[in-house]
Write a protein that binds this DNA or RNA. Structure first.
Ligand SMILES: [Mn+2]
Ligand SMILES: [Mn+2]
Ligand SMILES: [Zn+2]
Ligand SMILES: [Zn+2]
Lengths: 137, 137
DNA sequence: CGATAATTGAGACCTGATCTCACTGAGACG
DNA sequence: CGTCTCAGTGAGATCAGGTCTCAATTATCG
């Protein structure tokens, strides 16, 4: 019950077990683009007997609850992020370089879509892809 | 040399072979969110002896050339799209529903980032995620 | 405290993706 | 022409993440 999202798990009717707490802590304290393997490693550091299947099950649960969100970073494959907020990436299709940026022209649209389509929006991903300076040919 | 992107392959110094043409045609004529398996099936319909490995190799080549772009649609996994242009999705974290929308508040920012960071931008992906009307609890 | 149903870890299993390797065929060159 | 070279290819072996199964455990509630 100490991690930021523990209560969401409980009020949704799921048990707040040590394995789940370990996964939550791993996600909340770690880098924001962790692969499942990295989440597993981090969470096992907290709770050593943790099994791989449990991590995948927990990630699916947290995704369904809207706490976590899988995104796909070309080179790294699927990574996990906390759902809240935005991600803004510029990605080179050739070498895979990822640049993050801060500008976000999206919030008014978010508002409007949420109302029009009756969606409860938690976060977003804005990615531009193309060729970085080095890879332009 | 008949498909829309054939020339790009050639001018980059790669051979425009029948297997590659088949993959290009599959991509250009098919749905815009095809899994690798669907691309394989479609391309094999055009060129039956086509092997799986060749499809993956070609998709990687086309990705590096900036023609094609893998994106990750939660439920469906990785899908391939033509890189040019934008994708705008609203995705339910719980049931996986994907709604497409048309508004795009992104082009001015695209321009600015391209100049500032010296990127040649080909396309973008804007995804909102949250809970659809049915899945809000 | 039990009762009960959810949750778990180990390991078998599956499946998509990658690698290996012998082969092909389109040019380059004499 | 003949021959060399080398990018490209398909078949199939292999690999690696991810999923499933199942018996054991445990959070939660009355
Ligand atoms: Mn990010
Ligand atoms: Mn789309
Ligand atoms: Zn690059
Ligand atoms: Zn939904």
């Amino acid at each position: 019950m100490e991690t930021r999202h523990a209560k969401t798990v409980q009020t949704a009717g799921f048990k707040l077990t040590p394995p789940r707490q370990a996964v939550l802590t791993a996600l909340e304290s770690g880098d924001d683009h962790m692969t499942p393997a990295e989440v597993l490693a981090r969470a096992q550091a907290i709770y050593p007997s943790l099994g791989r299947a449990t991590v995948y099950r927990t990630l699916e649960l947290l995704t369904n609850l809207g706490i976590v969100r899988p995104i796909f970073l070309g080179e790294r494959g699927v990574c996990l992020t906390l759902a809240e907020g935005g991600h803004h990436h510029l990605i080179c299709s050739d070498c895979g370089a990822v640049v993050e940026f801060d500008e976000c022209p999206v919030s008014e649209l978010e508002q409007e879509l949420a109302e029009r389509l009756n969606f409860q929006i938690r976060g977003h991903l804005l990615e531009f892809y193309g060729l970085c300076a080095q890879c332009q040919g």
